[in-house]
């Protein structure tokens, strides 16, 4: 690693620039932004139709349905995560820069979370109401999603970075990342279920918080390493 030249921007400027660029690009294509959300709503609509519209049944399965729909919606957005950057050469620029890849990757993942995980979190109580979710479970559900979706996006980012150069990415990506999502799913659903049965949801939420801090610290390194492989050899 060479010492940064005087003309090279500082890490913070780099981080901000990357974040601003990614957000601008995301908002430049509103349909790509809206599609995972629409998917989230449509999948949730299918459950009352497919299982039962009975309020009692719905409230029992609401946390699980909401979480699984969020999981699949996250997965849907992942395939495109690095694809455009790779096609137009931005990814190579990112990897070849003298500064560590860690911060640009964090910025990229943060931007992706802001356009997928965050809207899902905000939308969840509304859809929870439609699924007859117990009112006291609303906040734990939202907290769980707020803490859990960053982990999903980061773990998914590893899969997306590993499959970035591949033609058969989609299905393989699902196979790679869905098993890794299991702990988040379990903890998130239990928080909402504990709350809806009148118990304290702090335990699973704290575990989710621990997982989120660990993932934010460690996973970008794995994503950076995977991107390097994709660029150097692809």
């Amino acid at each position: 690693m060479t010492a940064p030249l005087a003309s090279e921007p500082s890490l913070w400027v780099l981080f901000r620039g990357q974040l601003r660029r990614d957000l601008k690009l995301a908002f430049g294509q509103p349909s790509e932004l809206a599609n995972p959300l629409a998917f989230f709503v449509v999948v949730i609509t299918l459950f009352p139709l497919g299982v039962s519209p009975e309020p009692g049944v719905l409230s029992g399965m609401a946390p699980g349905v909401l979480w699984i729909a969020a999981l699949l919606a996250t997965l849907l957005g992942l395939e495109a995560l690095f694809r455009r950057d790779r096609d137009d050469g931005t990814l190579e620029q990112m990897v070849l820069r003298a500064q560590p890849l860690y911060l640009p990757v964090v910025a990229r993942m943060l931007a992706h979370w802001m356009v997928t995980g965050l809207p899902l979190t905000l939308l969840a109580p509304l859809l929870g109401g439609m699924l007859n979710l117990a009112p006291e479970a609303r906040l734990p559900l939202m907290l769980g999603l707020a803490l859990g979706t960053p982990v999903l996006v980061l773990l998914g980012g590893v899969g997306a970075a590993l499959t970035v150069g591949l033609r058969t990415g989609g299905v393989l990506l699902a196979l790679l990342v869905l098993p890794l999502f299991v702990p988040v799913l379990i903890l998130g659903v239990s928080a909402a279920e504990l709350a809806s049965s009148g118990l304290d949801p702090a335990g699973p939420l704290l575990w989710l918080a621990a997982g989120a801090s660990f993932a934010i610290t460690a996973v970008p390194f794995a994503i950076a390493a995977a991107l390097r492989i994709g660029v150097e050899t692809g």
């Binding site: 499959t163 150069g165 890794l180 994709g230 050899t233």
Partner: peptide, 27 residues
């Protein structure tokens, strides 16, 4: 199955090996 699928999907053996290594460590 994910690791086996990843190795199969990447054509160059060196790239496949390193990609699988990352996935195995995360796993």
């Amino acid at each position: 199955l994910g690791i086996m699928g990843l190795r199969r999907a990447i054509e160059r053996p060196e790239a496949a090996g390193r990609a699988c290594a990352i996935l195995a460590i995360v796993g």
